[in-house]
């Protein structure tokens, strides 16, 4: 196996890793925000259901959830055949639902940190509930949540490697195959450097975001 071929394979694998990463971020952040709203809802039934969801997502291994979606769902009687996913969508679904639970808890922490005086000031200034939420509360919530979100996003970069276990040809899977074939340790080091660079770039981006939204 020549150098050019393993480099192109690793580049392809990186693209799958990056694609998975962005899709998960794109869907899990808004989903997490929705879950936060459900979890802070006045309706006790909605609150209980959301609480159970968060407990399950945070209380069971992500790897199990991956297996559950990819290998498990198709075995459900009657509806299983509609729940059969390819490797990539299966991986994305498991990650999105898992990470959304963590983001929801981070956002909820952000909400709790906001002084009730902010709500009162908005009320006496005649802002509606919706205006208060999106003009006053959400921007402050995001700002407070940024460091924790940053942490979670960097963990996601590395967690994406778990999809190797369901046979998706992400960076780690490709690397492992090349190492096996070439009996060479270098691909592992290259992959490590790739994850490191991605984490570093994200660290820089979040630092910048924290500066921009500082108050």
């Amino acid at each position: 196996m020549d150098l050019i071929s393993w480099i192109t394979q690793m580049v392809d694998g990186s693209f799958i890793t990056i694609k998975l990463f962005f899709i998960v971020i794109l869907f899990s952040l808004p989903l997490g925000l929705c879950i936060t709203f459900f979890y802070t809802s006045k309706n006790i039934i909605i609150r209980k259901i959301t609480g159970a969801y968060i407990l399950i997502m945070r209380g069971t291994p992500l790897l199990l959830q991956l297996f559950f979606v990819f290998f498990g769902l198709p075995y459900i009687p009657f509806i299983g055949k509609y729940l059969t996913f390819d490797r990539f969508p299966a991986g994305a679904i498991a990650f999105i639902f898992n990470y959304a639970a963590y983001y929801a808890e981070i956002f909820r922490g952000g909400l709790l940190s906001i002084d009730k005086g902010q709500y009162e000031a908005a009320k006496v200034l005649g802002l509606s509930k919706w205006q208060t939420t999106y003009k006053i509360i959400l921007p402050q919530m995001f700002r407070v949540s940024l460091p924790a979100i940053s942490n979670e996003v960097i963990i996601l970069v590395k967690d994406t490697a778990l999809v190797t276990a369901i046979g998706l040809t992400d960076l780690l899977q490709v690397t492992k195959t090349i190492v096996n074939r070439t009996s060479n340790i270098v691909p592992f080091i290259v992959a490590a450097v790739f994850y490191l660079i991605m984490s570093y770039i994200l660290t820089l981006i979040f630092k910048k975001l924290e500066e921009i939204f500082a108050f």
């Binding site: 009162e120 005649g126 402050q140 700002r143 108050f215």
Partner: peptide, 19 residues
């Protein structure tokens, strides 16, 4: 809301919007 719009209020802890 309409009735209270005739009034303005100032708080002990200011409650400016920090962002």
């Amino acid at each position: 809301k309409q009735i209270c719009s005739k009034m303005g209020m100032v708080f002990q802890h200011f409650n400016l919007f920090p962002h």
